[in-house]
Simulated assay, not measured.
Amino acid sequence: MLYPLYVWKDKNSAYGASFPDLPGVFTAADELNALPAKAQEAAATMYEGETHIPEATSIEKWKDAADYADGYWMLVNIDRSRINTKPVRLNISLPENLLREIDAFAKAHQLTRSGFLAQAALKAMAR
């Protein structure tokens, strides 16, 4: 499904992007052509385990909004079938000190432990 992605770039920074239709989904990339893959990853992480993913709207709905005045728009295909909305419980063993570090990192980045581990796994598999 094609979602409007709002893109901006500040001087000496990466490209930032957000989806007005997917509140809370933000991403960034050093190269513009990397944004679609990063956007898919961000949407999958944000909506992991959710039962409802909002539908896409047209850019026309957002293009004149003041919050989106300083950037530009891209349409990005978000493959909703790659977003697993059904959580699966699993039992894993990790060293206690690693688990403490994971929890501290996740908390500092406003993630759940599961969200962080899923994001780390996706990143590792993308290499």
Rank of each mutant, 00 (worst) to 15 (best):
M1C: 07
V7L: 02
V7H: 09
W8I: 13
W8D: 13
K9Y: 05
K11S: 10
A14S: 14
G16L: 14
P20K: 10
L22P: 00
V25N: 02
T27W: 00
T27I: 03
A28Q: 13
D30R: 12
L32T: 03
L35A: 05
K38V: 03
K38D: 05
A39Q: 02
E41K: 10
E41M: 10
E41V: 01
A44I: 04
M46F: 01
Y47A: 04
Y47M: 00
E50C: 05
I53K: 07
I53C: 04
T57S: 15
T57V: 13
I59G: 03
E60T: 14
E60K: 15
W62N: 12
K63Q: 09
K63F: 08
D70A: 09
D70Q: 08
G71T: 13
Y72E: 09
L75G: 01
L75R: 07
L75Q: 12
I78Y: 04
D79H: 06
D79P: 02
I83C: 00
N84G: 05
K86G: 01
V88C: 04
V88P: 00
L90G: 07
I92W: 02
S93E: 09
L94S: 08
P95N: 11
N97T: 13
L98T: 09
E101H: 13
E101Y: 05
E101N: 13
I102Y: 03
I102W: 09
D103L: 11
D103E: 13
D103G: 03
F105V: 12
F105M: 09
A106D: 01
K107P: 00
K107Y: 00
K107M: 04
A108L: 04
L111K: 14
T112Q: 13
R113K: 12
R113G: 03
F116V: 06
A124V: 06
A124L: 15
R127W: 08
